[in-house]
Design a binder for these strands. Structure first.
Lengths: 202, 202
DNA sequence: GTCTATAGCCTGATAGAC
DNA sequence: GTCTATCAGGCTATAGAC
């Protein structure tokens, strides 16, 4: 592993290349289905050279997950108590859907991990994620009590947004098998927008 | 592999035990993450004995997937043109949600496969599944044209039902990390019911 | 920092006795 | 039909030269 100094340009570049390659490979084949060799080749390095930058396959995976968790939760983090309730929620949904469109690899990385019981990020879920969700559902509840949006179960409201938006990245093959050439997101955006307007209108 | 005769009671029992064990293991770890040894142990057999019943790990997986596809699509298959539109759709949704509750392993088996690009069931998706969905969306469209339910994109309506219901099985860990001791399905059923009533009311 | 070579483990599948 | 023993291949990770 590189010494504990400020990384050189080459070190930065290689680390970034490794993480990008790892994102490609892990998101497509899962942790166990990916090999260090695949990642190294895709990053343009030899296998031992890759293991010079990260001590193990596991370490690459962990670095990826924890590095991307913040990115993944940013849209919810930005939900603003001071904004207009309906517009805040709808724009949160748009941001999530946009992430499915632009960052499908990240979505599938987490999906792979979650489907298999989240062995590597269980703590982050029941701590960081739970805290963030609790914080934001409190805002949702307040809006409901003030009559700004309809009364629904706030946790399940969040789950539904995750499910609907991430579905298009995680199960992309299935969606495309059915839609054919039609762009999935073209139809998804107005559909989901309408759905939540109707659900949440007071 | 057993001879091409009518299977004995023991053969039936062992084949069933293997498939059940394989469902446990594959749904929890994915194809690549599962080992034949794990499956054999869970089925109460030795590894060579298991491979006496199925020629390879791949063969077990394929037998599982194709055997369960019909089960998985049955709820949609039962959507009845002659019934009351809103009630037909809502009861389809209830059946799907019930399957997530009672058959979470099956849901995760397919989820694992789909997230990784469905290498083993791609054909079934673009043929059997697509045909079934096309058939049923035609019914939905007719109901919309007759003004029985609201006009929405029929494909995305189906996707949304899959996403919302399967989310509770596939991402069970995440849901429970947030809900704590609360039963996920207790709150999910009325939430989803309300959601589609509001969305589809003409 | 990067490579070649290889150790050492795990895993899918087979051989052959019973 | 079921077992023990084992092979062959693929994998992570390390040793050691440059």
């Amino acid at each position: 592993m590189p010494k504990d100094r400020a990384p050189t340009r080459i070190q930065k570049k290689n680390r970034a290349a490794i993480l990008d390659a790892a994102l490609n490979v892990f998101s497509a084949h899962g942790f166990r289905g990916s090999t260090v060799d695949q990642i190294a080749t895709e990053a343009g390095l030899s296998k031992p050279n890759l293991l010079y930058y990260f001590p193990s396959k596991e370490a690459i995976h962990t670095a990826l997950l924890s590095g991307l968790l913040d990115v993944w939760l940013a849209p919810l983090h930005d939900l603003d108590e001071a904004g207009d309730p309906m517009e805040e929620i709808l724009s949160y949904i748009r941001r999530k859907l946009q992430m499915s469109r632009e960052l499908p690899r990240e979505s599938r990385l987490f999906a792979n991990e979650l489907v298999q019981g989240a062995p590597r990020i269980h703590d982050a879920l029941s701590q960081d994620l739970k805290q963030l969700v609790d914080e934001k559902t409190a805002i949702l509840k307040q809006w409901m009590d003030e009559g700004k949006i309809a009364q629904v179960h706030p946790y399940h409201l969040i789950f539904s947004i995750w499910a609907l938006t991430q579905h298009y990245a995680d199960f992309d093959v299935q969606v495309r098998a059915i839609l054919g050439d039609e762009d999935p997101f073209e139809g998804a955006e107005p559909f989901i927008d309408t759905l939540y307007r109707k659900l949440l209108s007071p």
